Simulated scan of single mutants.
Amino acid sequence: MMIRALVLAAGVATGAVAQDAPYAGQDGRAIAQLGEADVAALLAGEGWGLARPAELNGFPGPSHVLELADELALSDDQRHEIEQIFHEMQNDAAALGARYVETEAWIDELFGDKQPDPEELTYLLRSSGEMLAQLRGIHLMAHIRTAPLLTPHQRMQYASLRGYGAPDHAGHEGGGH
């Protein structure tokens, strides 16, 4: 009930006109489930918000660490190791992201045929879900691999630079680090 109230309030706050048609304007998408920005992010191996649990719990992501390399005063060794993690993550995520996008396109195609086969749909949904879980794993593991390469001070600085509030939250070592 609380979630429904929040969703309705968000719709009112954003001036949503077609409350009964939440997908209005999305019928022209190439892939119904994914907008153009989503597809571009997935094909580029970008995070797509998949590692948010790590990011918000004190495990910095390699992409953002590299963006903040100067402010964090990364050593050459740190920068090199984090670049490796980033490139591996990005390459793996881009390859799998392309497969995920393709699977979502097949789901659209299945419904576009107007006679979707339930068995084929089940297979495609299972495949899509497994790929999404693997994509999350790729990104989350990159955060796990990046965090111990930074000093506690750098992790606190990172959290502050990224706009995360509580110092005890930002400095949380977690995972036995």
Rank of each mutant, 00 (worst) to 15 (best):
R136Q: 12
A147Q: 07
Y23H: 11
E130F: 14
T146E: 01
A159D: 10
A51R: 02
A5C: 14
A73K: 13
L124H: 01
E46T: 06
A93D: 12
R162D: 13
G11R: 08
A170N: 11
G58P: 00
Y23A: 01
V101W: 00
L161K: 03
A105D: 06
Y158F: 15
F111N: 09
R126N: 12
A18H: 15
E36P: 02
G163Y: 03
E120H: 13
H143Y: 05
I82E: 03
R99Y: 02
T122K: 14
M141C: 09
D113W: 06
L135A: 04
P62E: 10
W106N: 12
D77S: 08
S128Q: 10
H87A: 00
A9H: 11
Q90R: 08
T103S: 13
G175D: 05
G165R: 07
S160R: 12
H143G: 06
L74N: 01
G35H: 01
A10K: 10
L135Y: 00
E88V: 10
P167I: 05
G25Q: 00
G97C: 09
D168S: 15
E46A: 11
R145V: 03
R79V: 02
V65H: 05
E46N: 12
G174S: 11
M1C: 12
Q26P: 03
H172R: 13
R52G: 07
V101P: 02
D77F: 12
M1Y: 12
D77H: 09
A10E: 01
P60Y: 01
D70Y: 00
E130I: 09
D168Q: 13
Q78C: 08
H64S: 08
P148D: 07
V7M: 10
Q33H: 02
G15H: 08
E104W: 05
I85Y: 01
L135V: 03
V12D: 15
D108G: 11
E83R: 07
V12R: 08
A9N: 05
L8N: 15
M156Q: 15
A159R: 00
L96G: 01
D70M: 04
A30R: 09
L161D: 04
L121P: 00
R136E: 14
G61D: 08
E102L: 12
V39A: 02
A13G: 11
G176A: 06
L74W: 03
I31R: 01
T14P: 00
Q33L: 02
L50Y: 03
Q78E: 10
D77A: 10
A13V: 10
R4Q: 14
G175S: 10
F86E: 12
A54W: 08
L34R: 06
E120S: 04
T14R: 09
H169G: 05
N91A: 14
I138N: 05
R79N: 10
G97E: 09
P60T: 12
L149V: 04
Y100V: 01
G129R: 14
A37R: 10
G35I: 02
Q154H: 07
E109A: 12
L121F: 09
R52P: 08
G97A: 02
Q19D: 09
H64F: 00
L135K: 05
L150E: 04
L66T: 03
E119L: 15
P53Q: 03
T14E: 03
L68A: 09
L135W: 03
L34E: 09
H139G: 11
H143F: 10
I107S: 00
A93G: 14
Y123L: 14
I82H: 07
